[in-house]
């Protein structure tokens, strides 16, 4: 006996699904539309369609609120941070996965447990450490801090990818006289490319979006990343009410993420759920 799901059950289930889709999409779409509205229009008709599309808000944000500089800073921090993470994580992940040495398990556990520790406590000493190293209020310093902060997650994902590479390839290469450095660079790295790409996309989104460490470790406006610049505009908006400019800067921040999500949706989802399941 197979019970068919009734027509009404299916409609009943769809109602919350559709409502939640609206709850997610409507504010985002409306933010994008708001970026094309004049301020007067936002006040007159905050939740409707714009009369005409104008790029005035984007120009205002770009040139009068230094968004151009902060986009540049964010790009540097994101790119450099992601690269540094890989440089640090790939050899360590390989050693932890394939090389036998005393303390292997311990080191792996140490890295992984750092994912669960609240880093807030460390930020105060980190502030002074960066000051001593002349890396405070410096986007390169921030890129280093970001890279190290994503190290545990990256090592975790990369080791699990490397575990799927057959050992026979390395053994054959070693017999042919290939040095371990070359094996790592010419065999392991290309074969773990799927994992490397997943990790890199996750890290880039993380660095592009990050706000709090930037708030603590950057001070001058010329070094602001996009998240800080937007927060700054948002605080200004309390007084100037230039909502259009604020929305334009939000759109600038969110468009790269939307593009990455459109291309790499599956990888991002997989990377995030696996990162969370490590428990």
């Amino acid at each position: 006996m197979k019970r068919k799901q009734g027509f009404w059950t299916k409609i009943g289930v769809r109602i919350p699904l559709v409502l939640w889709s609206l709850a997610v999409l409507y504010p985002i779409l409306w933010m994008i539309l708001g970026a094309f509205k004049s301020n007067a229009e936002i006040y007159a008709n905050p939740w409707g369609l714009p009369d005409s599309f104008s790029f005035g808000n984007f120009i205002d944000a770009w040139s009068n609120y230094n968004i151009d500089i902060s986009v540049f800073n964010s790009l540097i921090v994101t790119g450099l941070g992601a690269l540094l993470t890989l440089v640090m994580a790939i050899p360590t992940a390989y050693a932890l996965e394939r090389l036998r040495f005393r303390g292997n398990r311990l080191l792996f556990t140490l890295y992984i447990s750092a994912m669960m520790i609240p880093m807030v406590l460390g930020w105060i000493p980190l502030f002074f450490l960066l000051m001593q190293l002349n890396l405070l209020d410096n986007i390169f310093g921030l890129a280093i801090v970001y890279a190290v902060s994503q190290l545990p997650f990256s090592i975790f994902v990369l080791t699990s990818f490397m575990a799927t590479i057959p050992k026979s390839l390395e053994e054959a290469a070693a017999i042919d006289g290939m040095s371990p450095y070359k094996i790592l660079w010419k065999i392991i790295t290309p074969l773990s490319m799927t994992g490397i790409i997943t990790v890199t996309i996750m890290n880039m989104i993380q660095f592009w979006n990050e706000y709090f460490m930037a708030l603590i470790f950057l001070q001058s406006e010329n070094n602001y990343t996009l998240a800080l610049a937007i927060d700054y505009i948002s605080n200004e908006t309390q007084y100037t009410n230039s909502w259009g400019t604020l929305f334009a800067s939000l759109v600038i921040a969110i468009v790269p993420v939307i593009i990455l999500y459109a291309i790499f949706q599956r990888r991002i989802v997989k990377g995030m759920t696996e990162g969370a399941i490590k428990g």
Partner: peptide, 17 residues
């Protein structure tokens, strides 16, 4: 493989904590 990464991790994560 291990030492440079661990030094960075120790300096920017373990030491601050």
């Amino acid at each position: 493989c291990l030492v440079p990464t661990f030094l960075m991790f120790a300096l920017f994560t373990l030491y601050p904590l």
